[in-house]
Amino acid sequence: MDTGSQAIFAAADFWYLHSRYNSRAECEDAAQLYIWPNNPGGADDYECRPDGGRWGLWLGFLS
């Protein structure tokens, strides 16, 4: 996610780095396993961010 997730990122109550991937595509694919509605009770949003030559999957939760 790009600019849309930035606004959500700022509003999220809690974000954490879940895992790292070799490509953005891998990160985006993996995120689908952890977010709602694919995972009820899971994360509300995600963001894939560059992280030392890899991509970090950040999961965000709203209260």
Results as ranks from 00 to 15, higher is better:
Gly60Thr: 01
Ala25Asn: 12
Asp44Ala: 11
Ala31Arg: 06
Tyr16Gly: 05
Ala12Gly: 05
Cys48Gln: 02
Tyr34Ser: 04
Trp15Phe: 11
Phe9Ala: 14
Gly53Leu: 07
Ala12Asp: 08
Ala30Glu: 14
Glu47His: 08
Arg24His: 01
His18Trp: 07
Asn22Glu: 06
Trp15Val: 03
Glu47Cys: 06
Ala30Asn: 10
Ala30Pro: 07
Gly56Tyr: 07
Ala30Arg: 11
Asp13Gly: 13
Arg20Ile: 15
Met1Tyr: 13
Asp29Thr: 10
Asp44Arg: 03
Gly42Ile: 01
Pro40Gly: 04
Pro50Met: 10
Gly52Asn: 09
Tyr16Leu: 06
Asp13Gln: 11
Tyr21Ser: 06
Ile35Gly: 09
Asp45Ser: 11
Arg54Cys: 05
Asn22His: 01
Tyr46Phe: 15
Ile35Asp: 03
Pro50Ala: 09
Ser19Thr: 05
Ala25Ser: 00
Leu17Gln: 12
Ser23Gln: 10
Phe61Glu: 02
Cys27Gln: 01
Asp51Phe: 14
Gln6Cys: 10
Asp44Ser: 15
Gly52Lys: 07
Thr3Val: 12
Ser5Phe: 08
Trp55Val: 01
Phe14Ser: 05
Asp45Glu: 13
Ala25Asp: 03
Gly4Phe: 07
Gly60Lys: 09
Glu28Ile: 04
Arg54Gly: 04
Met1Gly: 09
Ser19Phe: 09
Ala25Gln: 07
Pro37Lys: 05
Thr3Gly: 08
Trp15Ile: 07
Gly60Met: 06
Tyr46Trp: 14
Ala31Ser: 11
Arg54Glu: 12
Met1Gln: 02
Ala30Lys: 08
Gly4Glu: 11
Pro40Asn: 04
Trp55Gly: 00
Arg49Asn: 02
Trp36Gly: 07
Asn22Lys: 04
Arg54Lys: 13
Ala43Tyr: 05
Ser63His: 06
Cys27Ile: 13
Ile35Lys: 10
Trp55Phe: 14
Arg49His: 06
